[in-house]
Design a protein around this nucleic acid. Structure first.
Lengths: 207, 207
DNA sequence: GCAGAATACGAGCGATCGCTCGTATTCGCT
DNA sequence: AGCGAATACGAGCGATCGCTCGTATTCTGC
């Protein structure tokens, strides 16, 4: 069990040059996932695309999984920023307006880098414990539940955890499916119609 | 462009012995997908598990993709059988009872071989044109739309295509997520509560 | 019973993958 | 300017993968 002398710095980067390397690697991974698919995303290919050597890649990432995990984390942060934003913006608003804004935000979130979103949602082998991508972040349920609590007077009596699950899952799947699987079938106005319907779905359910 | 003499029988099996081989291969693929994950499903591994040689495998399947596609097709047929069954059973029933049966069927469908369903839904790289698994079969929309048409007097005036999309997508995602991601959190009675909520969601939306 | 077609076999090929490690370069610091 | 640490490099190892092909076995029809 001899300590490694000075080896295995394989984690944090101190100089700014290495920060750039790390960023380039994550960005390259995302680009390749989008443009060439998961199967083509080999470590050699990623390093090449990033303009970096494989060796450098392995100085900062223990393996391919870690690269992909970094991309996922970055994308997830983007989505959660949107979610937190709309929930804050909606605070104090009556049910109908609030739900409409949330649904619209759902569409917007899925329209932001939809290609990457699609790859992450559809092509990711969730193998090896680390990979539970779930766009359904628990935080989403919590945020929505908090809003429901603040509007208890407007909704019928029900289990808020269950209600949050039903609403968040429905909104997410409707917007996800519409944007990613039927973007051809849904024109701009058709998308508005969908937003209307989704809003009605949720509001009438809660009342 | 010389015609192949007698080569490339790589398709149909005539003798019953070869039928057995094909079945064993598909079954083995499903088992390995479930028990060892997509990444471990190599052609050699599949052939071994099926008690068959790789050579035989390639006599009937052009490649790994085809094996997986066969598994998907089989599973899809199972699910569609359930869907057609419940839609027939529900014909003529009033809205509330019908929707409840459909939701219940959704739960049941996802509970049938849930491990395989999970692998197919989550681990499948939808690469190479052939792989669009989509549990959302267009037929599902059509079946549901047909029911709605037969019950037009009970529902408000709306675009039935859009309504079918909203309902089918919601029911599917709710049951899918509940069974596959929260089976721990949803006890038997909690699942009943979920069915109640989902039913209410859809019925109130349509009325 | 036998010929030929159908089926099954499995060693091993070429390609590719994830990853290592010895070496070269650049940075931070005095 | 000069030194050690940090960073970057990339040829290439070992493992594995999908798949082929020459051969062995089994079935079918006469």
């Amino acid at each position: 069990m001899a300590r490694r002398p000075a080896t295995k710095p394989r984690k944090h980067a101190s100089q700014q040059r290495s920060r750039a390397t790390v960023d380039a690697l994550v960005e390259a991974t995302a680009r390749i996932l989008v443009r060439e698919g998961f199967d083509s995303a080999s470590t050699n290919r990623i390093a090449e695309q990033a303009g970096v050597s494989v060796g450098s890649l392995y100085q900062y990432f223990p393996g391919k999984e870690a690269l992909v995990a970094a991309v996922i984390a970055r994308h997830k942060q983007d989505l959660m920023r949107v979610a937190r934003g709309v929930l804050a913006e909606v605070e104090g608003l009556p049910l109908k307006q609030a739900v409409r804004k949330m649904v619209t935000a759902g569409v917007k979130a899925h329209s932001h880098d939809p290609q990457l979103h699609r790859v992450l949602a559809e092509q990711m082998p969730r193998t090896g414990k680390l990979g539970n991508v779930d766009v359904f972040d628990p935080e989403n349920y919590a945020l929505f539940k908090r809003y429901l609590e603040s509007r208890r007077s407007e909704i019928r009596a029900l289990d808020l955890d269950l209600a949050a699950f039903v609403c968040v899952t429905s909104i997410e799947s409707l917007t996800h499916t519409a944007v990613l699987h039927h973007s051809a079938t849904f024109s701009e106005e058709a998308m508005q119609a969908l937003i209307d319907e989704a809003t009605r779905l949720i509001v009438r359910y809660l009342q």
